[in-house]
Amino acid sequence: MAKIIGGITTSHIPAIGVAMDKGLEETDYFKDLFAIYPPIRDWLTEEKPDIAVLFYNDHGLEMWLDKKPTFAIGAAPEYENADEGWGIKPIPPVTGETELSWHIVNHLIENDFDPTVCQDIKVDHGATVPLTLLWPNFTYQGIKVIPVSINCERHPMPKPSRSYAFGKAIGEAIRCWNKDQKVVVLGTGGLSHQLDGQRAGILNADFDNWCMDKMVTDPEAITQYSNVDLIEKGGAQMVEIAMWLAMRGCIEGPVEERLRNYVSPISNTAVGVQLLIPENEQG
């Protein structure tokens, strides 16, 4: 049976992708942020997951307002990236894993989640920046990726509790897949930030760190908040914690927090990174 071997939270800020393009990882501004990635890459190299299920939000590359899914799941053999309009360099295609995609879709619908199924979508920086960070120099092409998108742009958005439950159902689907494959789950985006309005620039380190603590010990505590509560606490784009909750929902039982990093701000955003290992899978 397939196994979830770990969960990773990571930012997807475009500025991080640009910094990698320009080789700015060692500069004063970025070095604290990039310091966390080599140990995570070491873990990935050692554990060799076959598949990454990646929760992200599309920022208007593929899913624009004309048809905007609340939850969507990729079921394509590959996913192209493209020009997003403001200068991040497109990267070569990401490899998909259609058999597990369809297994997850079937399991979800049997269990009362009804995502949009996408056989041809482009993925944006929400997916490509994390992949490039975790598998640099295009080595992400060696891992099969299932992108799962959550609407974090237009209200109404799924409630945080719903994103968590959605992740739980995906975790169950992975664990009952009859293939001997190792899966890593990725929650991208966050933490506190607000890009729009007079309140742009708000950050909340205390709340971010509370969320990171709860991601380990009690993720349901985060789901007590509504999206508007999250906006009040951590800015309009704090709602991106939906992807963290979905990722955490995939993992059953207690987790060990193997690594953590928090750097704020990078661009306009507080960046949290965690590597979580399911205790049930250790041995």
Partner: peptide
């Protein structure tokens, strides 16, 4: 961010930094 919050770009960056740097944890 500066344009929306009535700050110059430099002031906006300083505002961001004032809330974050120093609370870094590794």
């Amino acid at each position: 961010g500066g344009m929306q919050s009535g700050r110059s770009t430099e002031e906006f960056i300083a505002y961001l930094e004032s809330q974050g740097r120093g609370k870094t944890t590794n």
